[in-house]
Design a protein around this nucleic acid. Sequence first.
DNA 1: GGGGGCTATGGGGGG
DNA 2: CATAGCCCCC
Length: 765
Amino acid sequence: MEKNVVNHKSYLDELNDIQRKAVVSGSGPKMVIAGPGSGKTRVLTYRIAYLIQQGIPPHRILALTFTNKAAREMKDRIERVVGAAAKRVIAGTFHSVFARFLRYDAHLIGYPNDFTIYDTDDTKSVVRGIIKKLGLEPKVYQVSAIRSRISMAKSNLITPKLYAANTDLINQDRMNRRPMLQNIYGLYTQELMRAGAMDFDDLLLQMFRLLYENYDNVREKYQEKFDYVLVDEFQDTNYLQYQIIKQFIDYDHSPHNINIVGDDAQSIYSFRGATIENILKFEQDYPQVETFKLEQNYRSTNFIVQAANDVISYNKNQIQKKIWTSEEQGEKIKIEKCISDTEEGRKVASLIIEQKNRHHLKNSEIAILYRTNAQSRTLEEHLRRNNIPYKIFGGLSFYQRKEVKDLVAYLRLTVNYKDNEAMKRVINYPKRGLGNTTVQKIIDIADANEISMWEAVGMVKLSKRAENALLGFGKMIQDFTKRSETQDAYTLASYIAKKSGILDLLQQDNTPEGVSRVENITSLLNGIQEFIDLDEVVEGQDLDAISNKSLAAYLQNITLLTDQDQSDVDDVDHITLMSVHAAKGLEYPSVFVVGMEENLFPSYLSVSDPRQLDEERRLFYVAITRAEKYLTLTYANSRYHYGQVRYNDVSRFLEEIGGDNVDSIISSSNTTAGFGAARSRLSGNFKSLREVKVPELKIDPAQFKPSPNDQIAPGQKVLHLKFGEGEVLAVDGATDNKIATIRFDQVDNPERRIMLRFAKLQILD
DNA sequence: GGGGGCTATGGGGGG
DNA sequence: CATAGCCCCC
């Protein structure tokens, strides 16, 4: 990640020959094959900036990235070259961009525009319900296996009908003793439809259907909408994603302005349907494609680059390329042997302290990467003990906590009555006398009539008591919905937290856990406030989309957060812990890869399949190429797994690194456990950074008195809670949708477009 | 209908 | 080791 502010005229000078050629190339299909650290993001960013300078309107450029964070950072950098217009580029993940499109057009294919997005837990619950309903053996019909099979089918455009007609699939299911899988898939699809819900795959599949079925000529609308489509990390797209992109760009007289960027050696998502075939297919589908290979690495020192080459050379199938660097040799890679996972944690902590002292590293320059999220626990313990602040990305997220899910379920039901998973979650929480029997009755009626539970409520015969309880519940939800028409999401969510009884219930619990649950509810509410406070105009062309601060928009937003998307507003300098998968695209001066053992990395689930083993190796390749200067690899002879000690051999991958690039292997006998001992006294009140943080305000909110927004006029000096002091340059837009252009001198991109509908600005003097 | 405790079972990676 | 589903008892 470059830190320099880009000079408006000379950004092309920052590129090497091949990068520049890729950036300034003309129209038509382009492919950039980019090794790690080869300036891929830079090329993508400047390509877009260049297109805008060539006169392509920014809102006619669609950029699909791997995380929302990557999209944001890209826009920021484009902005430094071409100015605020960059904000209008349509950029985000496949899922979030298509979800946004579907919020306009889902009604054309039978969904409510305010559809719910079912997360993994919701879909598991749906599958579980179907298995129960069909009376199938749960041990044979395993929820996770079925879910991934349905997902695989969807990602390959296989509908339930096509599935049932596909003899290969049917035979596979028969062999696995799961002949009813096709029926489950069919029922699953129906149930989501009934609930007005889409799962993650539907955001792609229904987008495809929308374009393919082409009601109201919606396909032409999208084809006309974009001049350029750019796709990052193309090696990790699946068949369905590729087919959607093709719908956008394949039509009569299309210039086929598609630019893809990727690296086959970093393909690590085949488990969710990603296929390298897409790159090969791309060259066939667009024979006129112009290809650029970026092989010079600007990230890492030579020992690290060579180690990466050593490792990846063990994979037979790959597009030939060799990354190289003109950087110094640097420090050799350190390999640390540990007796146990506990010792590994201790050692990593003390090595971090040592490294920080020796190389003057900040915490933020250090990352610990692991193969499985479960490995974070031991590490956390030792970091805490040594008073090293850390933050964990991924794993169990804030939004998966019970109390958060409960409140979110109320919000979901308020937006979409048909959301059965939300309904089941809160119909009797807090307790209101609607037990299993009543709920089951409602489910049965709903199933029999193929309607949602909400719609079935009126048709169920119940005891007087249950009926009254149900009536009260229904009235309450309807009241919430009514309020949603006038109140903003924060006010409404706070009201719901109180009125539903959730807050009261949690506040009765005075144990530390209970207190933290209340805190989490508060954090959630703060998050909603933050969401609606984002008053900045982000995209230009669809004012409706931007100004949508509805609950529905908020809910969609939180469901589609990626692991890298958690807020980096943070006052504490912290090290980073995450899975190797989550580290994709990131870089750190110092990287620790822990758990380098057989059956862990590579995973025991992959060791017997050569193709999966190759993917594990690519994953390791990704891991080591995250490091700029210092790379430390650790392994432990013994490790707890399921609460039992397991003994593992050292990972084969370590042996694949040429000895020239590795420092002597340090034995575990004389460890230095005492580094952090003196500091541990301080660690008592150290707080884990897992919690979502409320951003630090530059201004004391108590001193802040917002002025009425209709008084905002050009020339005024104003105060903004997040951006500080600024000068109003202009006010434009319709009466009820005014936008102020304000220059804030204390922030990076000083000129901001602020929507007065949501803005809180204090006029100074 | 509600609550508590027990047991079995899962844990690879993620939008 | 952690959790969720399930069974049993009030």
